[in-house]
């Protein structure tokens, strides 16, 4: 049953990713509209997939690293669909959707889109810890998406691209401001998620693993980013720092997950 929804979701997200590339490189209009429909339909399919997973499991169904990756992709696309796909920010899909396609494929390779991934942890702990960390990571991912779009738009301005006014993108100031706000909302969620995890670690007397350390480093990077932003750090350099923070998230989400969930 879950398979029935996975492939259409991946297909629609893939169509959306290609559509946004078309929107950015050709005359804007139809490709962008098709891309948005791809996001909508893909999101519906993935929502159905998650609902099937939730219905078939007794406990929290996304407790494995691949399962949490599946949920993470859904959170990222949800935020994009309901907030980022509005006309001025629509091209954010150019950075978000290829990423969603890649991570959803990885989630499937890891078995995160199927049934039967129960955990020994309590549901409350998993919802609080995994949920908060994933919400924060989704926020940081969109921050990074905005930063990538910022760098693209800034490059077009620097290159004096004659077609700059034909392909709508948010203004540099808007993207700079929004990426700061998104990060400012996401950091408290990450802090809480980490705190819940640490309380659990201490309670059970477990040791820290590589993922915990990488997550703490990620927290430090994003906290540093916000601190710098408060002190007036902005523009292209701030965008590069956000992308570095995002790279750490990728490491945390993919490379080190096996250790933490083992």
């Amino acid at each position: 049953m879950a398979e029935l929804f996975f492939w259409p979701a991946l297909l629609f997200y893939g169509e959306a990713a290609l559509g946004y590339v078309g929107e950015a490189t050709r005359v804007p209009g139809r490709a962008g509209r098709l891309a948005l429909w791809g996001v909508r339909l893909g999101w519906l399919m993935q929502t159905a997939l998650l609902a099937v997973q939730a219905a078939r499991e007794d406990g929290f169904p996304w407790s494995t690293w691949a399962g949490s990756l599946n949920l993470f992709v859904w959170l990222v696309v949800t935020v994009y669909l309901f907030w980022g796909s509005r006309r001025p920010y629509r091209l954010l899909g150019l950075t978000v959707m290829p990423f969603a396609v890649a991570l959803l494929a990885v989630a499937r390779a890891g078995g995160g889109t199927g049934i039967g991934s129960r955990s020994n942890y309590s549901n409350l702990f998993l919802v609080a810890h995994v949920g908060l960390v994933l919400v924060a990571f989704a926020g940081f991912t969109l921050t990074a998406g905005l930063s990538a779009l910022y760098l693209w738009q800034e490059r077009r301005l620097k290159q004096r691209n004659a077609g700059i006014l034909r392909k709508p993108a948010p203004s540099l100031a808007t993207m700079d401001r929004l990426s700061f706000r998104l990060a400012a909302w996401s950091l408290p969620a990450l802090t809480l998620g980490i705190a819940v995890g640490i309380v659990r670690l201490v309670d059970r007397g477990d040791g820290v693993d590589a993922l915990v350390i990488a997550t703490l480093v990620t927290w430090v990077v994003w906290a540093g980013y916000l601190l710098l932003r408060v002190r007036g750090f902005a523009g292209r350099r701030a965008a590069y720092v956000a992308l570095a923070g995002f790279l750490l998230i990728i490491v945390v989400r993919i490379a080190l997950q096996g250790v933490h969930f083992a």
């Binding site: 738009q153 301005l157 700059i164 006014l165 993108a169 948010p170 203004s171 540099l172 100031a173 808007t174």
Partner: peptide, 12 residues
């Protein structure tokens, strides 16, 4: 008007 539209691309 292109100058004004460019300003909007930078400052919103």
């Amino acid at each position: 008007s292109a100058a004004a539209a460019l300003a909007e691309q930078v400052f919103g």
